[in-house]
Design a protein around this nucleic acid. Sequence first.
RNA 1: GCACCCGUAGCUCAGCUGGAUAGAGCGCUGCCCUCCGAAGGCAGAGGUCAGGGGUUCGAAUCCCUUCGGGUGCGCCA
Length: 581
Amino acid sequence: MNLFAEIRALIVQSLHDMAEAGELPAGLDTAAVAVEPPRDKGHGEAASNAAMVLAKPAGLSPRAIAEKLAARLAQDARITQADVAGPGFLNLTLAPSAWQGVVRAALVMGADFGRSTTGQGRRVNVEFVSANPTGPMHVGHVRGAVVGDALSNLLAFAGWQVTREYYINDGGAQVDVLARSAYERYREAHGLDPEISEGLYPGDYLIPVGEALKARFGDSLLDKGEQYWLAEVREIATDLMMTEIKGDLAALGVKMDVYSSEKALYGTGQIEAAIKTLRDMDLIYEGVLEPPKGKEPDDWEPRVQTLFRSTAHGDDVDRPVQKSDGSWTYFAPDIAYHFNKVQRGFDELIDIFGADHGGYVKRMKAAVSALSNGRVPLDIKLVNLVKLYKNGEPFKMSKRAGTFVTLRDVVSQAGAEVTRFMMLTRKNDVPLDFDFAKVLEQSKDNPVFYVQYANARIGSVMRKSTESGMAVDDASLAKADLSLLTHPAEIDLMQKIAEWPRLVDIAARGNEPHRVAFYLYELASEFHGLWNRGNDEPSLRFVQAGNTATALAKVALVRATGVAISAGLAILGVTPVDEMR
RNA sequence: GCACCCGUAGCUCAGCUGGAUAGAGCGCUGCCCUCCGAAGGCAGAGGUCAGGGGUUCGAAUCCCUUCGGGUGCGCCA
C-alpha cells in the first residue's frame, strides 16, 4: 500500500494508453517518471515530472504531453484535479477517499504497514561491529552496531533476506598481545606483580581472565616461556572477550545471525584459494610499490611484495597481500572472507566500517568486484565519530590508563533505546554529538522524547475511548466511516502517514536508516500539531463526546498514526511507550 | 603529494537515483496558556546552499576547479 507508487503506476499506464492512441511514440522508457509529495502545498498533493522527462525522447513539448496526460488522469476516481504547472509539472489533487484509504490500510495491516517487496527476497549480508576481540565494546562501536542493526531491520522490512554478521578479527598480532596481557593478569592472580609493559592492554577487564586462567591451569604456566602457553591462553582469552562482546551487544538489543572467524580462514586453504582465484585473473603479481608522495616513511626501502592489482577495479594503487616474510597481510584474509560471502550466494554485501577505515573502501570493493565478476555489489557505510558530552561539556571518563567509555557505560546512563534512536539522528558519515543530559531531557529538543510523547498521547486517546465504551480494536476502527475525516488538517496528517511506505523504499534503496528517525520526528510533529489545534477548535479534538461515527473515525486516524510510529520505531529497535511516567 | 568524507540560517542539522518560492529544532522578536496531557502553542525575522566554471528545460544535488575542516596512505587489524 504505497499510494504514491499506485499513482505512479496509474501514470505509467496512462502513458502507455497514450502511446496506443498515437499521442506518444511507442516504447518510451518511463523509469525516470516519479511521483512525490510536493514540497509546496500550492502544488497539489502529488506531483509528477512525467511530461518533462519524456518530452525530449518523445520530441514533444512537456506541456503538450502534460495536458493530455492530465485529461486522462482526471478520469480516475482517486484524482479530483490534475493541473499542469510551470515547465510541465503535473500537480494532482487526490480525493479525500484516497487518503482515507491509507488510514484503513494502516489499521488492516498493522505492524506490516509499509512493508515492501522491493527487495524481492534477495539475500543481503550486513557485516557490522566486527570489533577486535581484545576487550569490551566501547562507545566508538555503539554507533556502528546501531546503524548496522537498524539497517538490517530496514532491509528486512523492504523485502530483503538479511544476514547480520560479525567478523571476528582473531587472526592477527592483536590477539597475541591480548594473550600476553592476560598472562600478566594470570601472574597477578597468583599474587605476583603484573608487568603491563608498553603495548599490552592495561584494562581491568582482563583481571577476571587472569583468574579464569588460574582456575584452569593452577600454577603450571608460571615462569614458562610463551611458547608453552601463548596459543592456549590466546584462545581462552579471545573466547572470554567474545562472550563479553556478545553480552554488550545484547545489552544494546543487537543479535547477530553469524559470527565468522578470521583465524578459521588460516590453515584451511581458503586464503590461498581466494588469492589463486585472483592470480588466475592475472590480478596478483610480484612487484615494488612507489613510496607515498609527500609522506615518505623514514625507513622506506623498495621491496618486492605480492600485490593485488586493485587498480584494475578502481583503486588508486595496488595493494600488498603478503608481508616480506611471506605471511599474509590483514588484507589477504579479508579478501578470503569476502570471497566466502560471495560464494555463500549473497546478492549484495554491506560493510559498516569506522570512518578511520575510509582508506580501505576502494581496495575492498575492488576485491569483491574481481571475485564476483562484478555480480555482487558491495556497499560500505562509513560510520563517523560519536562525541560525548554532558550538559554541553565534553564527557571524559577517568584518564587512568586502560579505561574508556564502554558501551555499558553509555547504555547504563542513557538506556539502550534512547541510545539507539539518538545514534540514528545523523547520517552515518557525519560526526554525531551525544549529550548524556540532553538525550534524557523531556522536551521538544529531544527527538526520542518527542516521538514517544506522540505515541503516549495516542495511547491516552485509546484509553479514554475505551473508558467511554467505544470499541477501538483495529478491526472495529477499520470499519469506521473515514469519509468523515475531511478537515485539511486531518488530511495533512493522513498524507504524512501515506508517506511511510514510500519512505521505507527510499531509505532502503540508499541503505539509510537515519531517514526513518527523521520521518518519525516529522510524523510526530504533524500529530502534535493537530492535537494542539484541538485546543482552539473543539471539532478537531480526537476524543469526541459520545460513541458517534465521527468519534470513531477520529480514533481510527489516531490509531493509524500509532501504527506508523510503531512500525518506524520497530525498525530503529525502539519499543513505543503508551504512557509517559 | 594523493585518495575518501564533510562544508546548507547565529548554532546543531534534514533535504527523495536533479524538480517549482531551500526546510526543522535551538536561539532571537511578538502574541497566546481555565481547553482531549501546556512535558507548551501560534506567528515573524534570519540563507551568495564555502567560491568560481560547466552539463541540463531545471542544480544544494551531477562534472571540473579553488578554498576550508576531518580521515587515511608498504611488513597494524
